[in-house]
């Protein structure tokens, strides 16, 4: 977006000053700055990470969008690129990294695994979509999405940023945004918010087993 695009329609600018002056809203110029300097966090999870690296490399080169500064530290990153399969062992770290990112922060789920589990969804140690734990802004399906598909995902994200307003975004509200509780690795992955549910489920399972055992005993007795 150049200066011409930044100018709000309806304001005539003298031809001599065209290209030098734009009349616009604060929201618009603020978002314009932000969307052209989205710094992704440098971490890759699985196969998709390589397409992410390719997007950063010579041919697709996402530094053209002001994204070249891949930050290894979550504190300096604006965008978390969840590039690949999220496993139960990895999700506590991802949630922790997300909590550590300073706002405004965005999450882009890259590839079907990060979106909703992907081809490995049926497995026992794969999380069915990273959005089970952290809010996702843009989903890029594909296995893996080609670099151009990822770049399109960035374009979609930029559009989202463009339409935000300082007055409504969550990070300028008075109340603090609560941190997401970090999942715990128990016998299986446990979300601290769901302990009661898990307990009820396990209790029900035990009850079922008892009934089954009793049932089979009865059957045995009858036979």
């Amino acid at each position: 977006m150049g200066v011409e695009d930044l100018n709000l329609p309806g304001y005539e600018i003298p031809s001599a000053m065209k290209g030098n002056i734009a009349i616009t809203t604060l929201d618009r110029i603020y978002n314009w700055c932000r969307q052209n300097s989205v710094w992704p966090m440098m971490f890759g999870l699985a196969c998709c990470a390589f397409e992410m690296i390719c997007s950063a490399a010579s041919r697709f080169d996402f530094s053209r969008f002001g994204m070249e500064v891949m930050r290894p530290s979550p504190r300096q990153a604006d965008l978390m690129l969840v590039s690949g399969t999220v496993t139960k062992k990895m999700i506590p770290q991802i949630v922790r990294l997300y909590n550590q990112m300073s706002e405004p922060k965005y999450v882009l789920a890259m590839g079907s695994c990060a979106c909703g589990g992907g081809p490995f969804k049926e497995g026992y140690s794969v999380v069915s979509g990273v959005d089970k734990f952290i809010p996702v802004d843009v989903y890029v399906p594909g296995c893996p999405p080609t670099p151009q598909a990822l770049l399109h995902g960035f374009a979609v994200l930029r559009k989202k940023i463009e339409n935000e307003s300082i007055r409504t975004v969550r990070w300028y509200r008075k109340e603090a945004v609560p941190e997401i509780p970090i999942p715990v690795l128990g016998p299986d992955l446990m979300d601290p918010r769901r302990y009661a549910e898990i307990k009820a489920y396990a209790a029900e399972k035990a009850q079922q087993r008892e009934q089954e055992a009793a049932g089979s005993l009865n059957e045995g007795g009858q036979a």
């Binding site: 979106c115 843009v138 989903y139 890029v140 594909g142 598909a149 995902g153």
Partner: peptide, 13 residues
């Protein structure tokens, strides 16, 4: 067509 990024997977995927 690879340009199918969305904001909401539950509605579109």
């Amino acid at each position: 067509d690879y340009e199918i990024a969305t904001y909401d997977r539950f509605a579109h995927h």
